[in-house]
Every structure is written in C-alpha cells, then in structure tokens.
Computed example of a mutant assay.
Amino acid sequence: MRAHHRSRLLAATAAVCALSVALAGCSGTTKKDSKDDAKEKAQNAKADPDAPLKKGLKIAFLPKQINNPYFTVVDKAGIKGIKEFGGKGKEVGPSDPKASSQVSYINTLTQQRQNAILLAANDPNAVCGPLKQAMKQDVKVVSFDSDAGKDCRHVFVNQAGSDRLARQMVQDLSRQIDDKGEIAILSATQNATNQNTWIKIMKDELKKPRYKDVKLVKTAYGDDDDQKSFQETQGLLKAYPKLKGIISPTTVGGAAAARYVSGSKYKGKVVLGGLGTPNQMRKFVKDGTVKEFLLWDAQHLGYLAAYAGAALASGQITGKQGETFKAGKLGKYKVGKDGEVVLGPPTVFTKKNIDKYDF
C-alpha cells in the first residue's frame, strides 16, 4: 500500500507540473517577474534626441517631506522649469519622512496619469513596488537627491557624485580639527539611500592613514526633523564630552546642530560640517559657529530633474547610458551608468561667498 500510495503521489505531481509548464515551467524554472516589464520596456525603447519636448506635460514633484526648506527650494525651481517648456508642475507629499509615507502619493499620481513623477525616496524598499506599477502605466519616474533604486526608476538625478561629496565632507571637517579627535555623524533617516551611501563612503575614507587619529564614535539619526536633530546634537555632545566635530550629511541636521551649538558652551570648540542651505546657515557662518559647509545649487537640482522628466516623457531619452538631453539654461547632460545624471561638483560655502546665494 505504501508503494502504491507513493506511485499515485508521483503521478499527481507530474500531472500538475505538465499543466503548469506553460505558465511557469516545472522544477528548476523561474517565472519571469512581471514587475520588471516596465524597466525592460524602457531599456528596449529607442531614444530620439531630436524629438521636441511635448507640450502640456503633467509632472509632479514628490519630496521626502513638503515642510523641508531644502525641498521647497528644489521643487519650486523645478516647477518654474516645467512652466518654461509649457508643462504643468506641482508638488505633493507627506509632512513626515517616514519609510512608507510616500506610497499613497505615488499611487494617486499614477491614477492621475501624470506623465512623470520626480521623487526623492525616503525608503527605496517601500517605494519600489508602487513606482514599478507607475512605470507599467507608462509614467516616467525620475528619482533625485535620494535614489529609489536603479530598477525602480528610469533616471536618477544625483546632486553631486556620491564618492566625491562624501569624501569631501570628511576631508573638510578633519582638516578643521587637525586630523585628530572624536567625531560623530548626524544623519537623517536610517533608510535614506543617499545618507547611507554617503556614510558608507565616509567610513571608507576614514580608513586612510591620514585619519589614524580621528575616531568616529557615533552615527545618530535626526529623521530630517529639526527638533529631533537638535536633541540628537545635544545628546551627542553630552555623551561624548571630547567630541571635536559633527558631520551632518543633511541640511535639516546641519541647521539644527548649528542652532544648538551657537547657543551653547561648545561654540568655537566643536567643528560642524556637512551640508546646508545658504539661507539656513548664513547667520551661523557669520557668527562663527560654522566655518564652512557644502551643498550643490538646490535650484539647479530641481530644474535639472524637471527637464530629465520631460526628456523621458517626450522620448528624447529612455535612461540608457550615453543618451543626452538639453536641460534648458543648464545645457546638455549625459546619462551615465545605471541611469545616473550628475548635476555637478558641490560648492563650498564660507563667510566670503555665502551672500552671493539666496536659497
């Protein structure tokens, strides 16, 4: 009976396998993941660099959070660029940068048949699925500032080369503390793609012989929230009384750290570096709390992202390496490896040049 039962089981399994082979194959064969159809379609499409930008394009900016001063600057400049080529631009988004907070907005924008969604990803794991669904509906996806992942968008507009930017943040801060002492990193959210990429490169930079006397004691997360970043700065300085410097690879964290240090006994003793916007950091530079910080032109970032979205929606580019498009007044840009478009080198802001910028 046992052998008879075994033979019946094998026969049944074979029958099921035969019936399903047309769909997915039998043991050892993997069914094609339909989620990647949109990306494959884009990769197989042919770009027409001479195609004119379409009129009336609907393009939406989806920042990490809408009450973040940095993203307000980026998105406003981008929407202004959209108007230049006769499109309709808007900004929508959550009031907090939580991992899944952007998902409902992606779904709504897809239902609205936007021609392009321009997104700074809070968490690539959370937004990837919805973005793939948008791409299947022929919505072009551009990630900027913080990447959604190469399979979850057509193009990534990077504000500056990640390697150069991260290493420069370490180099500039270390120089100011004479390459000696304890330092900390005050980041944004734990899942932010750009933050994690930069932090990984920073740690690699710190392995070099130059930094043998520099010790990274802590990476704290202010969640791109001003008050939490302020409190995290306070906590770092209390927990590490010998702390010599703090790198904030986030404009919210940079401004909050400067605000705390400027009114404390640590002013002039603890070096602050990393990223910031001129308008947020101007008073801290002028009162000596911060000597220098980095950033790219945030207005140009939004403007470039807008034109990248329009170029995709108009068929000028598909996201393949080597393709080129013109970004209005910024001129011609080339799509690099994995669909990356780099805005350009960062700017170092100091007391000498900060008043030349207004954003």
Rank of each mutant, 00 (worst) to 15 (best):
Leu237Val: 04
Leu19Cys: 06
Lys283His: 04
Lys208Leu: 14
Val170Met: 06
Leu301Lys: 06
Gly273Lys: 07
Thr251Lys: 00
Thr233Asn: 00
Lys320Tyr: 12
Leu206Tyr: 05
Ala306Trp: 09
Gln190Val: 14
Thr13His: 01
Gly87Glu: 06
Leu294Glu: 12
Ile106Met: 01
Pro52Ile: 07
Tyr303Glu: 10
Lys80His: 03
Phe359Val: 13
Lys265Pro: 09
His4Trp: 01
Phe325Glu: 11
Lys132Met: 15
Glu40Met: 11
Val73Glu: 08
Gly254Leu: 04
Lys267Met: 12
Gly315Glu: 13
Arg175Val: 08
Ser7Ile: 13
Asp225Ser: 07
Arg259Leu: 02
Gln114Asn: 06
Lys140His: 10
Glu205Arg: 14
Pro345Val: 13
Thr72His: 01
Thr30Ile: 13
Phe144Ala: 03
Thr108Leu: 08
Asn125Gly: 15
Ala38Asn: 05
Lys242Cys: 01
Gly315Cys: 14
Pro69Ile: 07
Ala126Lys: 00
Gly309Thr: 13
Ile117Met: 04
Glu84Thr: 10
Asp123Cys: 05
Val341Ser: 12
Gln137Met: 14
Ile199Ala: 04
Asn68Pro: 10
Ala327Tyr: 14
Arg113Trp: 00
Ser104Val: 11
Pro97Trp: 04
Lys41His: 12
Lys320Cys: 12
Cys152Arg: 02
Lys337Trp: 06
Val74Gln: 02
Gln111Ala: 14
Thr250Leu: 09
Ser143Phe: 07
Ala126Asp: 06
Gly274Gln: 05
Ser27Pro: 01
Ala308Asn: 08
Arg282Gln: 09
Ile317Ser: 10
Ala99Trp: 05
Thr350Arg: 11
Lys242Asn: 15
Pro63Met: 06
Ile317Thr: 12
Pro63His: 03
Leu57Tyr: 06
Ser187Phe: 03
Lys228Asn: 02
Asp123His: 07
Gln195Val: 09
Leu295Ser: 15
Val21Lys: 02
Thr189His: 06
Val155Trp: 03
Gln195Cys: 09
Lys352Glu: 15
Leu10Asp: 03
Gly93Glu: 08
Met169Tyr: 07
Gly245Glu: 01
His300Ile: 04
Arg2Tyr: 00
Ser187Cys: 07
Lys332Tyr: 08
Ala45Arg: 09
Gly315Gln: 11
Ser146Cys: 07
Lys46Met: 13
